[in-house]
Amino acid sequence: MKTLKFARAIKEGFLSFYRDKWLTLATISVMTLTLFLIGMTVFLGLAVQETITNIEKRINISVYFNSDVKQERILEIQKTLEDQKLKEIERVEFVSRAEALEKFKELSGEDEDIKNALDVVGENPLPDALVITATKTSNYETISEFFEQQYAELISTTSFAKNKGTISEIRDRMVFVRNATTFLSIMFVAIAGLVTFNTVRMSIYAHRKQFEVMRLVGASNTYVKIPVIFEGILYGLVSAVLAIIILFITVYLVDPFAKGLLSDANITDIYGRQAITVVFAVLIASILLGMGSSYIAIRRYLEK
């Protein structure tokens, strides 16, 4: 008997969803929009995160050695560093003075003044260097200090000393962007949740007389509740599917305009990588919203 009644209650939910077309349409359109907002927020958050990580990967510092230090000694230091597997250091790369000159020439291009200046100097003025990428931007200071203490007699300078200001500025801004994104995400999701809750509540309010009748006819509270909650889940599921489709379309359309904004990654790629996260976030949010809202909203009509 329990199974039969449960199956019937589920059928009731389906029927109500299908027959109250306008109500269903109204509820689903509002829910789809809010879920789209949630999806967009989650996705933007992920995109920002990924962009920040990309930028962080490109920051590095160079440790310049005195001209009398032999290449072998520098390579030895590189090997020591790599063997130690310090948690602060991601990668150590050796750039010889010859390579550095090549790169410098490449970067300065056809600038006559620089060419002339190099000719006047006659020999390669650039030092050998180790280019170090840290695991975290905040580690550069430590790394730089480490070199200045450990190998003080070998090195002439580090680029951290020169770029200290810039690096910390970049770091501050990224922290700000990250916090702002998190804050906005929480705001949007909260607003979206409230809107959905109220929409479902209104849809249930429209049915309130029915609940009274159902109870008069002898339906237990559970028998009245299950179809409503199930209908809430249906609202959630359908809205989620629609929202995900609209999200995909939006990302696809926005992609050409967003190129360059997000450094090397384009957003379709990011979306492709994060799609599962976004889809899951939207699906779970929608089911919880639909189910939770209807569960809370129906209770007040069954209190008697």
């Binding site: 009644k5 029915q210 009748v213 002898g218 237990s220």
Partner: peptide, 20 residues
């Protein structure tokens, strides 16, 4: 006090359905 989104038949059947 009939349920608006049910047919006459379904309304009458509902009273038996709720009792399993």
């Amino acid at each position: 006090k009939l349920l608006e989104n049910k047919t006459i038949y379904e309304n009458v059947a509902y009273a038996l359905e709720v009792q399993g």
